[in-house]
Design a protein around this nucleic acid. Structure first.
Length: 427
RNA sequence: GGGGGUGUAGCGAAGCUGGUUAUCGCGCCGGCCUGUCAAGCCGGAGAUCGCGGGUUCAAUCCCCGUCACUCCCGCCA
């Protein structure tokens, strides 16, 4: 099934690519960030299966694994559930791997979002190696060590990784080299303790009480030959920092088997989060269903509500994500209302969906898999642009054709557009 | 918007602390040889060292600026 590319701009999610309408002055189409609303409409209208190899567009800054136009295998099923989508996806990927002479065992392991964040510091964990993170905040509630004390008293956390048995492989300089890495994650620094036969060596150990040290070693099962690294800050910064440290050291210590394909499901995401301005936003998108058991606390405790969404991760890269969708108009209204999207805006933007839901929609859900990222991982390349013909540069330009480019003023006039950018009309 | 890296022949790279004709591989051109199959041998062309400025007797190398590409943070699923 194919769906339109010229669609409607929606307030949620990434920045849209806009296309001006010549026929209706002053109005714009948006290129799809995903065919989400179309495929749901198809389910509601009675198609029980859908798939599409879909081009998607998101006007955000680029990364090694991200460019603004990309390709998804987009699929949706009615009368299914999370297990149904997961099972289908696993079979699809297994089949795909077979075609290219690789293999995997299904079902894939699953990890809850909160566990992923705690143990790996990220919702896209690379599970090919250990070096897992442990929370040690509880051991330092009354600590004299100001760095930990300040982090904890302002609501932060102290977490650590025990680099078991790697002490001899890590010089003092190696440990000091972690500092700039942590700085790049907005962290203030990183502390470490080296466990030796002659006792712990560390610039910070002198600030710990005997109790603190002992319970720390017990909790982390620390023995001579180990090195413990710490971060203390807000949870977000600690996770980001230790995740970066973990990956860096995993590579440096040669712990990552790059012939391995380690798939993981990440599930039980929260339904909502605070966006940068502190407002309530969808973690996934506004059509994601909460799990049945949490619906009752949507209004009373929205941030505790778990969503029926799932991501699939391969070797530490998110290669797809999906969810069960809301198939009830009333529930959809409640969620939009919690997101602060007023009745009028809901109606103007998603009215067609709300109306369709009213006629009785089947339970449905699906997933979208990132084709470019999967290709990148299967080929072992380091950039998504290695597997895209005519890729965009980091400034989202096409070097070969020179797009984007200036256009003659007449063309703008026809589209009822006037540019405020300097020199734009001199093409 | 912020931080880091890179820019040397068509392509991929080397060039230590500034010092005579900027090096190597692949490719290209010419010749020789050859039962080819990623051939071999000999010879050759090809570089405003991203661009602009500065320091210096002397700059690919140091400094400032600028452009491009790239990695990361913000942003994005």
């Amino acid at each position: 099934m194919e769906t339109p590319v010229l669609g409607k701009s929606t307030p949620e999610g990434a920045r849209d690519y806009l296309v001006p309408s010549r026929i209706t002055p002053g109005t714009f189409f948006a290129l799809p960030q995903s065919p989400q609303l179309y495929k749901q409409s198809l389910m509601i209208s009675g198609f029980d299966r859908y798939f599409q190899i879909a081009k998607c567009f998101r006007d955000e800054d680029l990364r090694a694994d991200r460019q603004p136009e990309f390709t998804q295998v987009d699929l949706e099923l009615s009368f299914t559930d999370r297990a149904g989508v997961m099972s289908l996806t696993e079979k699809l990927l297994k089949h795909l791997l077979k075609q290219v002479g690789r293999s995997c065992t299904i079902p894939f392991p699953r990890i809850a979002y909160q566990d992923a964040i705690l143990r790996f510091g990220t919702d896209a964990p690379d599970v090919r190696f250990g070096l897992e993170i442990e929370d040690v905040s509880g051991l330092f509630t009354d600590t004299a060590f100001t760095v930990f004390k300040n982090a904890l008293s302002s609501g932060g956390v102290v977490r650590a990784i025990n680099l078991k048995g790697h002490s001899s492989a890590l010089s003092r300089k190696d440990l000091d080299d972690l500092t700039p890495l942590v700085h790049s994650c907005k962290g203030k620094g990183i502390a470490w303790i080296r466990m030796t036969e002659d006792g712990p060596q560390s610039p910070i150990i002198k600030y710990f009480s005997e109790d603190e040290s002992q319970s720390l070693y017990r909790k982390l099962h620390a023995h001579p030959g180990d090195v413990i690294v710490f971060a203390a800050d807000t949870e977000k910064i600690v996770c980001r920092s230790l995740s970066a440290v973990r990956l860096y050291l995993g590579r440096k210590l040669g712990l990552i088997d790059d012939t391995q394909l380690a798939f993981t499901w990440v599930e039980d995401f929260p339904l909502f989060e605070h966006d940068e301005t502190g407002r309530t936003a969808s973690v996934h998108h506004p059509f994601t269903s909460p799990i049945e058991a949490d619906i009752h606390m949507l209004e009373t405790d929205p941030f505790a509500v778990t969503s029926d969404a799932y991501d699939i991760v391969l070797n530490g890269s998110e290669i797809g994500g999906g969810s069960m969708r809301i198939h009830n108009a009333e529930l959809q209204r409640r969620v939009l209302s919690i997101l602060g999207i007023d009745e009028q805006t809901s109606h103007d933007t998603f009215g067609f969906l709300l109306e369709a839901l009213q006629y009785g929609a089947p339970p449905h859900g699906g997933i979208a898999l990132g084709v470019d990222r999967i290709m990148m991982l299967l080929l072992g390349t380091e950039s998504i642009r290695d597997v895209i013909a005519f890729p965009k540069t980091q400034k989202a330009a096409c070097l070969m054709t020179g797009a984007p480019s200036l256009v003659p003023r007449e063309q703008l006039d026809e589209l009822h557009i006037e540019s405020i950018a300097p020199d734009i009309n001199d093409a």
